[in-house]
Design a protein around this nucleic acid. Structure first.
Lengths: 220, 220
DNA sequence: GTCTATAGCTTGATAGAC
DNA sequence: GTCTATCAAGCTATAGAC
């Protein structure tokens, strides 16, 4: 037998995936410039040089971290939206259902077993308020945004396009602010609440946003 | 006359204030680790070493940038709240008024002539979603938060303390997300709207948040 | 208070052997 | 694909003259 064992240093996932997992975890904890590609390599049990081999630059690594998750997340949101639509006879959905289809998949992934998704959700919570992150995420979130804005328009026909856009931004802000788990709630409540108690937040969030969106409408 | 001219290199503000102004402008544009104290010194027309003389460390410089503004902002918010209360006979204010007292001062400062305040408002919009920023801002925003949460409690007596805390967090999230001017709205609207059109946002924001807060309440 | 100079590290990127 | 070694540039913090 001439077969010589390849013996990969780490048996589990492919190197590229391990680097993405490590970067995801670190970017969820620290801002872009505070994370070094050396830390990423170390956490991934890979060598520094491999970052360059797979991603060429740190910015591209960051973008790939987001892109890997956004595709699946967008699919889940659209699936839920489609399901709600198939259950409704009328053309327009209740606003609550649209809000739910946007936020619920994020909540479920965040409460699931996958640590990677937990990290992504926390990271995602910070993307919306940063110019730099939005630039690196260029185009990743826009298709979903357009679809949900149009859906909101059907349910709130008296709203102008501009009002719908602001409303959607408010929705995203509440969702992001809450899921980023910055620890703000712990401080407000003297430790009684944990920002990781996302289910409680979700139960308050959906009625909050739905009622808010209706209130923007000129015809109340 | 034995008086010898002191001849300061730059006539205007004291060095410490110029460094704070410069840091404020740069931290408004870039994340903490992306701003170097060299840039700060250069923009302030001062020497690198003076950062250490006045602030000892970069983190303390950041904290002082926030602290300088927060004191005045908190005063404006409390003034407005007190004015609304003096205009109302009943014990509880309409929720709208509480929301206004929190957000309106920020809007007015942002629309004013002072570029420093504009920078601060943009920076402030990112503080709430970042663990690191909140740590550096330790305690700066908490007194205002407690006062406004209690005020909300009087207007929404059927809400639990936990619900009020989530509601306040949602309020802050919407405010922050909008005032951070990340350029998200421009992308959503294909350039038709500008995130700097904050007046339009404000007109939608107050009814949105007020209706949202009422919807959290168990007794609608 | 303000200046210069620099110590002591860390960074992202990459070249080139295997 | 993976490894080592290193480059050139940047950083914060600080010492010490004036």
């Amino acid at each position: 037998m001439t077969m010589t064992a390849k013996k990969p240093r780490v048996p589990a996932a492919a190197t590229r995936e391990r680097l993405l997992d490590a970067a995801e975890a670190l970017f969820a904890q620290h801002e872009f410039d505070a994370v070094t590609i050396r830390e990423v390599a170390e956490l991934a049990q890979a060598r520094l040089g491999l970052n360059h081999y797979y991603f060429k630059s740190k910015e591209e690594l960051f973008r790939q971290v987001l892109a890997r998750r956004v595709e699946e997340l967008s699919k889940l949101r659209l699936d839920m939206l489609a399901r709600f639509r198939s259950e409704t006879n009328t053309a327009a959905l209740p606003v609550e259902k649209i809000v739910e289809a946007m936020i619920c998949p994020l909540l479920e992934l965040s409460l699931g077993q996958d640590e990677g998704w937990k990290s992504y959700v926390r990271l995602n919570g910070r993307v919306a308020t940063s110019e730099k992150y939005l630039r690196m995420a260029e185009g990743l979130y826009d298709p979903i945004a357009q679809i949900f804005i149009e859906e909101l328009g059907r349910s709130l026909p008296s709203c102008s396009r501009a009002q719908l856009e602001w409303g959607f931004l408010f929705l995203v802000s509440v969702m992001s602010g809450t899921f980023s788990e910055s620890g703000r709630v712990e401080r407000l409540s003297d430790g009684a609440q944990r920002s990781s108690d996302l289910s409680a937040a979700y139960r308050a969030m959906v009625p909050f946003i739905a009622a808010g969106l209706r209130a923007i409408s000129p015809e109340k």
